[in-house]
């Protein structure tokens, strides 16, 4: 089986879906001739033509609005926001129209579209304030959307295919630092990974770590490091925020009674708060320590300076330190 990067897996998913289903179209800034600024759609315009791979103006509100119109008229659009940071002009279209269409029309109209968004930053990304934000909490708050964030190439391909085939609008978040730094064997050909279930990436009896995005990989590194110290961690890949796999989350919490939630997004009102609340509601009598979050601080973004990048972003060492403290509690 060939090893692929996350970005290659995403490319393959779009390529295969467009070949399989002529109603699948791709639109966004530079997705056509340029092949996407991250090269996710390289070669697709040559293969499927300008009618299905559409270079749009720099107007995210219109990208989302056009995609919604396409979806209502029988197509399955993949809208690419060049950076998740740029999705805010499109926020109104997504939250006021796409997300509520099905409810508003009493189930009469569906919006089967995918909005792909490269997000996140961290040391070496140098995305600064406008190219490294984490936006998942904004979208996960909206009823009517699905919000997924695969961290492994295998999941990226399988979940993007599932998202394209899904009848609901799906916000599909791709961590930029994971794009080329994470490799994994990815099967050629068709398979899907369902949108919803979390995945337990490793099991241990002392501390449970929940994460997603690039920090999931840092969490796995921290767990490996802690194993050498006799601290065994369960690591849960919360690859879907909406739907949220409460069952797996609660079971993993019960396993250890000590939980650490790690994400890059600002700590307050982030996905970690929801995960913590689920655990508090459903696993109270299994908790042996306060629930802890290790997240990005509440500042408006990751500064360009390398020192800011390092300071903002939890890494394996800091995750290990937090888990160690929990294990000792």
């Amino acid at each position: 089986m060939p090893e692929k990067t996350l970005i290659e897996a995403i490319h393959d998913a779009m390529d295969e879906e467009m070949a399989r289903d002529p109603s699948v179209v791709l639109l966004g800034e530079d997705v056509g001739l340029r092949g996407g600024v991250f090269r996710a759609s390289a070669g697709l315009i040559e293969k499927y033509g300008e009618a299905r791979v559409i270079d749009t103006p720099l107007a995210e509100s219109s990208i989302a609005g056009v995609a919604i119109g396409m979806a209502l008229n029988g197509l399955r659009p993949i809208a690419e926001m060049q950076f998740a940071d740029f999705s805010f002009p499109a926020f109104n279209q997504i939250q006021s129209e796409a997300a509520r269409m099905y409810y508003r029309s009493n189930g009469g109209w569906k919006v089967p579209m995918v909005v792909r968004m490269p997000y996140g930053g961290g040391p070496g990304v140098h995305g600064a304030l406008y190219h490294s934000q984490s936006v998942e909490a904004f979208y996960a708050h909206i009823p009517g959307l699905k919000v997924v964030l695969p961290s492994f190439p295998y999941d990226a391909k399988g979940m993007l295919k599932a998202a394209i085939r899904d009848d609901d609008p799906v916000i599909f978040l791709e961590h930029k630092k994971a794009y080329r730094s994470v490799r994994q064997e990815v099967p050629d050909g068709d398979y899907t990974v369902p949108l919803g279930p979390a995945e337990v990436r490793r099991e241990g009896r002392h501390v449970t770590i929940y994460s997603y995005g690039f920090l999931l990989h840092e969490s796995l590194r921290a767990a490996e490091q802690l194993k050498g110290e006799g601290i065994e961690c369960t690591v849960v890949d919360v690859r879907s925020l909406k739907p949220l796999d409460k069952k797996t989350i609660v079971e993993a919490a019960k396993l250890t009674g000590r939980v650490l939630i790690v994400h890059e997004d600002n700590v307050s009102f982030g996905a970690g708060a929801e995960i913590a609340a689920v655990i508090a509601e459903e696993a109270l009598f299994h908790l042996d320590a306060p629930v802890r979050r290790l997240c990005g601080p509440d500042v408006p973004g990751i500064g360009f300076n390398h020192v800011y990048e390092v300071e903002f972003t939890p890494d394996a060492a800091r995750i290990a330190a937090a888990a160690r403290e929990l294990a000792r509690y």
């Binding site: 009674g257 299994h286 908790l287 042996d288």
Partner: peptide, 18 residues
């Protein structure tokens, strides 16, 4: 929460009580 006092004897977590 991560600076437990000098003596935490007598204070029990929900898991321990259960």
């Amino acid at each position: 929460p991560f600076a437990p006092g000098q003596s935490e004897r007598g204070r029990y977590s929900p898991a321990v009580r259960r």
